[in-house]
Lab assay of single mutants.
Amino acid sequence: EINVTSHGEEQAKHWIELAKRMNLDVEVEIHGDKIIITIK
């Protein structure tokens, strides 16, 4: 399980695309200006 804290939408999209390509599950939480991505 990987937790990524992203401070930008572009960076977040990059991680989500990467996870989808690798067929991994992704959870995205938004806390103000921080985007927390959990890849399982």
Rank of each mutant, 00 (worst) to 15 (best):
H7L: 10
G8W: 15
E17W: 13
N23M: 10
E1S: 10
I16R: 03
I16F: 08
K20Q: 12
L24P: 01
M22N: 06
K40R: 08
T5I: 12
E29G: 02
I39P: 00
A19K: 08
I37G: 00
N3I: 14
I16P: 09
T5E: 07
I36F: 04
T38H: 07
E9T: 13
I30D: 01
E17A: 09
N23A: 10
K34P: 00
V4N: 04
E17L: 13
K40Q: 02
V4W: 04
I2K: 05
S6R: 02
G32C: 12
V26R: 00
R21Q: 12
E27T: 13
I16E: 04
E9P: 11
D33I: 12
I39W: 03
K40G: 03
E17P: 14
E9L: 15
I16A: 04
I30G: 01
M22F: 14
A19G: 06
G8S: 12
N3Y: 10
K20T: 10
M22T: 03
H31L: 09
H31R: 10
E10R: 08
I36K: 02
V4Y: 04
E29T: 12
T38G: 01
I16V: 08
T5D: 04
T38D: 01
D33P: 02
G8L: 15
I37W: 01
I30R: 05
A12I: 13
K20V: 15
E29L: 10
K34R: 08
L24N: 01
E27Y: 13
E9N: 10
E27D: 03
K40Y: 10
E29V: 09
E1L: 11
D25K: 14
H7N: 10
K34C: 15
E17N: 05
E9M: 13
L24F: 08
V26G: 01
I36P: 00
L24K: 01
V28H: 01
W15Q: 10
K40N: 03
K13E: 03
E9R: 06
D33V: 14
S6K: 07
K13I: 09
I35F: 03
R21A: 13
H14K: 11
L18V: 06
I30L: 04
I39H: 00
L18F: 10
N23C: 13
I39S: 01
D33Y: 08
D25H: 13
E10L: 07
T38V: 05
G8R: 11
I16G: 04
E29S: 07
I2P: 06
G32F: 12
E10M: 08
E27K: 13
G32D: 11
I36W: 02
E9F: 14
L18E: 08
K20D: 15
E27Q: 10
L24D: 01
I36A: 01
L18H: 02
D33G: 03
E1N: 06
R21E: 15
E1P: 13
E29I: 11
E29K: 09
N23W: 15
D25W: 15
I36M: 02
E27H: 11
H31M: 09
V28N: 00
N23F: 15
I35P: 00
Q11Y: 11
A19C: 15
I35N: 00
D33R: 03
I16L: 08
I37Q: 00
E9D: 12
N23I: 15
M22V: 08
I30P: 01
T38Y: 08
K34Y: 14
V28M: 03
L18M: 07
M22L: 13
A19F: 15
D25R: 14
V4T: 05
Q11F: 14
T38C: 14
T5R: 02
H31F: 09
E17C: 14
H31W: 11
K13P: 05
H31P: 00
V28L: 03
M22D: 05
A12P: 05
I39F: 05
H7E: 08
N3S: 09
N3A: 06
W15K: 05
H14T: 08
I36H: 02
E27I: 12
E9K: 10
G32L: 13
V4H: 04
V4L: 07
T5P: 08
G32Y: 10
T5A: 06
K34F: 13
E1V: 11
V28W: 03
V28R: 00
H14Y: 14
I37T: 00
M22W: 14
L24W: 13
T38S: 04
E27G: 04
I39Q: 01
K13Q: 07
H14I: 14
A12E: 07
R21G: 08
M22H: 07
M22Y: 13
I30M: 02
V28I: 10
I30W: 05
K13F: 12
K34H: 11
S6A: 14
H7S: 09
K40M: 04
V26A: 02
M22G: 04
I16H: 03
I30C: 12
A12S: 07
S6Q: 05
G32T: 04
I35W: 12
V4S: 06
R21D: 15
A12N: 10
K20W: 15
I39D: 00
D33S: 09
K13D: 07
K34M: 12
E1D: 08
L18Q: 04
K40L: 04
K40F: 08
A12H: 06
D25C: 15
E9C: 15
D33L: 09
K40E: 02
Q11G: 06
E27N: 06
I39V: 03
A19S: 05
V4Q: 07
K34D: 02
D33H: 10
E17R: 08
V26L: 03
T5N: 10
V4K: 06
N23G: 14
R21Y: 15
H14F: 14
I37E: 00
E1Y: 10
E27M: 10
E29Q: 10
I2G: 07
E9Y: 14
N23K: 07
D33C: 13
G8Q: 10
K13T: 05
W15T: 04
V28T: 01
I35Q: 01
L18K: 05
A19D: 13
K34Q: 07
I35V: 02
E17T: 07
H14G: 04
G32Q: 12
I35R: 00
A19L: 15
M22Q: 07
E17H: 08
T38N: 03
E17K: 09
H14E: 03
E27P: 00
I37A: 01
H7M: 11
K34G: 04
E27R: 13
D25M: 14
R21P: 14
A19I: 13
E10S: 10
W15R: 04
S6C: 15
H7P: 07
K13Y: 07
A19H: 10
K34E: 05
W15H: 05
V26E: 00
W15N: 06
Q11K: 11
V28Q: 00
I30Q: 02
V4F: 10
W15D: 08
E17M: 05
W15F: 09
I2F: 10
E1I: 12
M22C: 15
T5W: 05
L18I: 09
V26M: 02
N23D: 05
S6T: 12
K13G: 06
V26W: 06
G8P: 09
A12T: 08
I36S: 02
K40T: 08
H31G: 02
I35Y: 03
G32A: 11
V26Q: 00
E17S: 06
K13H: 06
Q11R: 09
H14P: 05
I36R: 02
L24I: 12
H7R: 07
R21F: 14
R21V: 13
K34S: 04
D25V: 14
I2R: 02
E1T: 12
N3L: 12
K20Y: 14
I2W: 12
I36D: 01
G8T: 13
I30T: 02
I36Q: 02
I39L: 06
L18D: 04
T38F: 05
S6E: 07
N3T: 11
I37L: 02
T38M: 03
D25Q: 12
I16Q: 03
H7Q: 04
M22S: 02
H14V: 14
D33N: 10
S6D: 03
N23T: 13
I39N: 00
L24S: 01
T5Q: 06
K34T: 09
H7F: 13
W15S: 07
I37M: 02
R21K: 10
A19N: 12
L24M: 03
I2V: 08
H31Y: 12
V26N: 00
K20A: 08
I37R: 00
D33A: 06
I2H: 05
Q11H: 05
I37P: 00
G32R: 08
I16S: 04
G32S: 11
